[in-house]
């Protein structure tokens, strides 16, 4: 059994990350999933949230949204709709997005639009939160 796991984060458009890490925590649909080397094969859907992993003592965080995760043989494949490093997040547009989503949430009471707006709101909140706490994104 290896003492590290290969973490791969892939979106339909690109491979965001592919690295050997010590531990991963992914936002599963039914709650956070902590994955250490030697984890049992597992498949779960993801929700919008923060994926974090530690590598040599340092913890890193990413924003992921939608998709699913597959764990097999010391390999974690995250197939997300969206995956962003904190320094890739556009704070201004995330803020705009949040405002718009809030407005739409107020306007439409239910239905598909409501869900879509809610999802966008969640996404923008995660983005802003990540961007705020990440030192690399701060100077911008």
């Amino acid at each position: 059994m290896a003492d590290r796991i290969q973490l791969e984060i892939i979106t339909p458009e690109r491979r965001v990350l592919s690295e050997a890490v010590d531990a991963v925590t992914v936002p599963g649909l039914n709650g956070e999933l902590g994955i250490l080397p030697g984890h049992t094969p597992l498949i779960s859907q993801l929700r919008t949230g923060v994926l974090s992993y530690t590598q040599g003592g340092t913890a890193r965080r990413l924003h992921v949204s939608g998709g699913f995760v597959e764990v097999s043989e010391d390999r974690v494949s995250v197939l997300a709709d969206i995956a962003e490093q904190p320094d890739e997040i556009d704070v201004a547009s995330a803020r705009q997005e949040r405002e718009r989503a809030e407005r739409e949430l107020g306007a439409s009471a239910n239905g598909i639009e409501f869900e879509a707006a809610q999802e966008r709101l969640e996404r923008s909140q995660v983005r802003l939160q990540l961007a705020a706490e990440s030192p690399s994104a701060a100077p911008r």
């Binding site: 094969p41 498949i43 779960s44 859907q45």
Partner: peptide, 15 residues
């Protein structure tokens, strides 16, 4: 491989 399914396979499949 014998996977653990966090959600039911049907659910994941239809997604």
């Amino acid at each position: 491989v014998d996977y653990i399914y966090e959600q039911s396979p049907e659910d994941i499949f239809s997604r």
